[in-house]
Design a binder for these strands. Structure first.
Lengths: 140, 140
DNA sequence: CCTTGAACCTATAGTTACTACAGGTTCTAT
DNA sequence: ATAGAACCTGTAGTAACTATAGGTTCAAGG
C-alpha cells in the first residue's frame, strides 16, 4: 500500500488535502519544494505524505499555520524535547476551551431570544429578538 | 445622553465599532450613506446608532454579514413577521451548537494527547503527540 | 506510434470581514 | 490664527485557502 513515489494528486488524496492547498503550502514554505519530472511535475515520497498529514491533522485541531511552523521546527531540528510540543498542545486546549465557553454563552443568548419570541405572527415591530439586538451589551 | 447629531467617531464609539468598520459597512451597503457637512464629513443621527448597534450585536452572535442583510431587510421593509427572524435565530442556534460539538471533540483530542505525553523530557522522536499528529484520522 | 483526456503547471483574482496605512482636508478649541 | 485631533479617499494587507484561465505533460488504449 505504501508507494515510493507520489504525484501531487496522490499526495493530496493520501493526506486528505486538495492539490491547490499543497501548492499553497509550498508557496508559504510549509511544504518543501519536491523534485520534479523532466516535464516539471512534482514528485513526492512517503515523508511528504507524513508531513502533509501532520499539517492537515494539526489544522483540524485548530492550530494556526504559524503554530504548525513552530511544531515542524521542533520536529525538523534535532535536540528538541517533547515538553515544547506538550506545552503548545496544552495552550491550544485552553484556547479551544475559551472558544467553547464563548459559543455556549452565545448559544444560550440565541435560545433565550427564541423562547422570548413565542408569537411568530407578531409584527416585526414587537419582535423581542429584534428588540434585544438593538440593545447594547453592557454599558449604555 | 441622546444627541441629535453624531460624527462618525461618536457613532463608532456609541455602537462599539471602529470608524474604519463604519466606512466598510457603508461600502458594502450595510449602512446607508449619511448626509454630509459642507466640508464632506459624515453626519449621523440616532437611527444610525441603533442600526449599527444591531449589526454589531448580530455579528457578536455569529451572524454573517449576508444574514444580517436579510435580518435588516425584514426590519426595513414593513409587512414582515417575527416568524422569519425567529427562524433565522433558531437556525443560528443550531449552527452554533454544531460548532460547540466540533470544538468539544477537538478539546478532548488535545487533552488525550497531553495526558498520553507524560514524560516531557522524552526526545521528540518518542513524543506521543507528534505521533498522533502523524496518524490519519479515520481510514488508512 | 499516436491520440485523447485526465492530471498537471503557473499566475492571478476572489473569498470573508475587516484593519492599516498614506497623504491630504476639515473641524474645534484655544 | 493656529495647532492638532478627527476626518476624508483610496489602496493594500490579513488568514487560509479556493477558483479560474490558459497552457503543458503524462498515461493508457488502439
Amino acid at each position: 500500500m505504501h508507494k515510493v513515489k507520489y504525484s501531487i494528486g496522490q499526495l493530496a488524496k493520501e493526506s486528505g488535502c486538495k492539490v491547490e492547498t499543497v501548492h499553497y503550502y509550498e508557496k508559504i514554505g510549509l511544504m518543501p519544494e519536491p523534485p520534479r519530472t523532466e516535464g516539471g511535475h512534482r514528485v513526492y515520497a512517503l515523508p511528504h505524505v507524513k508531513r502533509l498529514t501532520f499539517i492537515r491533522r494539526s489544522r483540524e485541531l485548530g492550530f494556526k499555520i504559524e503554530q504548525i511552523k513552530d511544531l515542524l521546527k521542533f520536529i525538523d531540528e534535532p535536540n528538541h524535547y517533547c515538553g515544547e510540543v506538550r506545552a503548545m498542545a496544552m495552550q491550544q486546549a485552553r484556547t479551544v476551551q475559551e472558544k467553547i465557553n464563548d459559543l455556549e454563552r452565545l448559544h444560550s443568548a440565541l435560545n433565550d431570544m427564541v423562547i422570548q419570541c413565542k408569537d411568530s405572527n407578531n409584527s416585526i415591530d414587537n419582535c423581542p429578538i429584534v428588540d434585544s439586538l438593538f440593545t447594547k451589551k453592557a454599558t449604555e
